[in-house]
Structure formats: C-alpha cells, structure tokens
C-alpha cells in the first residue's frame, strides 16, 4: 500500500498538549517537515518561548533551549554566534515577540542575525488565559479588554512584518495564515525559504503565521480558522514583506 502521509521524524513521539483546533500544532509540523526535507537533522538548535509553545522543547527532535519571555532572539543569537554551522530557530508567540520581546526581535533583525524566527500571531495571550496581546484586533474582546480593544485605551495592533521590513538586516520577511489547506501549503513554502536563507548564510528570516486560539477566542475550531482568514488577514495582510533575492 502506498504511503500518503508520514509523521516527520523531526518531531518526537510526545503528544502535543495544544487545545483541539489550535494551529500551534500545524506550525510545529510545518517547521519539522521543512527541517527534515532540508536534511539538517543532527544540526539544529531550537529555542522555545514562554507562552503556549513553552513545551516546544518536548516536541522538536533536536537540541532545544527554553528562553525567558521574549528573549528567544537573544538566546538564539548566543547559540548561533558560537555555533555558526548549526541551524538555529526561535519559535515565539505575539506576547513574547511583539510585546515583552520587541527590543530583542528588532535588534536581532537589524543585526541580520543569521537565524530563523517562527512568529505565531494568535492575537491573544493564550497561555495566561486570554489577555489582550499587542496584536489583538480593534474591537476584539479579551479578559483585559472586555468591551473590546479600543484605540483610545490600548492603541492599535502592532504589525511586526511591516515594521521589520523597514530594516536592512532581514533577508526574508513573510506573513502567512494557518487557516486552510492552500494557506498552510503557502506557509510551508515560506518556512522552508526562511530556513534555506539561513543555511545559505543570507541572514535573518522571519515568518509570521496568523494562528488560531479557539479556547481564548471562545470559538469552535472552524469558527476560529474562519476568523483567521476573514478578520485577521484584514489587519495583517498576507504576503512577502521582504525578500533580498527579489530586490
């Protein structure tokens, strides 16, 4: 019988702890598949964030470091600079990357640090129970913006890809959505490219993945992916924001 699907061996056997319908799991699988397809097994250091993906160190089948909240790009910098021949990636949520860790991500990008960053934007603080994130949409309810996010009180959502694309350091910046098969396939291509750039020594690459949090959005899994596709993409347009190969 022909094998049509196999679990990548860049993931361990540990079952994910993610909620049903959470797209963190898809993001993990895409990253792991790309690493396997690039043949870098035994040459990878992954950095896990603080957030729902903190246990990423149990899932990726490579050496893993757990970083303090928001500091993954700095930790990745230390690992990469002392092991320049290894593939180093940081996996971060939006609270981690776009709030407490803004300095770390901007400067890693500005230095053109030769690492790959996977940025999970689910517009909410998942792990701590649904508080407002820097990427929460205007009007979106969270446990700390119960009437919906307002410009007057909370300001506007932060658009990380647009911001980092203004810097000269990055080699590749793209935003994708984990909302449906076609977009998941696009996301995989972008992640692969982000790793290829690192392997080729082209410098900092980041892929933002619009992601679902059915649990804290109070939605079913299908409502949640629809929200990603219909609502989040309006504020966070998909596309490639920087690609030095095309400049």
């Amino acid at each position: 019988m022909a094998v049509v699907f196999e679990k990548t061996n860049m993931l361990t056997e540990t079952p994910f702890h993610y909620c049903p319908g959470c797209t963190h799991g898809i993001a993990h699988r895409l990253v792991a598949e790309c690493l396997q397809e690039l043949g870098v097994e035994g040459n990878v250091i992954g950095i896990a964030p603080v957030g729902c993906a903190v246990f990423a160190y149990n899932y990726f089948n490579c050496d893993m470091q757990q970083a303090a909240h928001g500091r993954a790009p700095a930790v990745a910098t230390g690992a990469k600079r002392t092991n320049p021949d290894k593939v180093v990636f940081a996996y971060q949520g939006d609270g981690d990357l776009a709030s407490i860790g803004t300095a770390e991500i901007i400067h890693a990008a500005a230095r053109g640090e030769n690492i790959t960053v996977i940025f999970i934007n689910n517009a909410i603080y998942g792990m701590t129970g649904g508080q407002m994130a820097p990427t929460t949409l205007l009007g979106q309810k969270s446990t700390t913006s119960q009437a919906g996010r307002s410009v007057a009180l909370n300001g506007n959502p932060i658009k990380v890809c647009e911001m980092l694309a203004t810097l000269d350091g990055p080699s590749y910046i793209a935003r994708c959505a984990l909302s449906d098969t076609a977009n998941v396939n696009k996301a995989k291509k972008a992640i692969k490219k982000a790793f290829e750039n690192q392997i080729a020594g082209k410098g900092f690459a980041m892929v933002e993945l619009l992601s679902s949090c059915p649990t804290n959005w109070g939605m079913t899994p299908t409502q949640a992916v629809d929200f990603v596709k219909e609502e989040m993409t309006k504020v966070f347009p998909l596309g490639v924001y920087k690609d030095i190969d095309k400049e």
Binding site: I45, I47, D63, Q65, A67, A68, R71, A74, V75, A76, T77, G78, A79, K80, R81, T82, N83, K86, A103, E104, I106, H107, R111
Partner: peptide, 20 residues
Amino acid sequence: IQAESEVSAINMVYGAAAAG
C-alpha cells in the same frame, strides 16, 4: 557582540553557554 541592552546581553550568554 554589543547587545541592545543588558537584558539581551545576559540572554545571549544563556544561549551561548547552553550551546557549550
């Protein structure tokens, strides 16, 4: 590396030390 802050500097130390 001249880091962007002491927070980043010590976390770079963390990553480098963790990698040996």
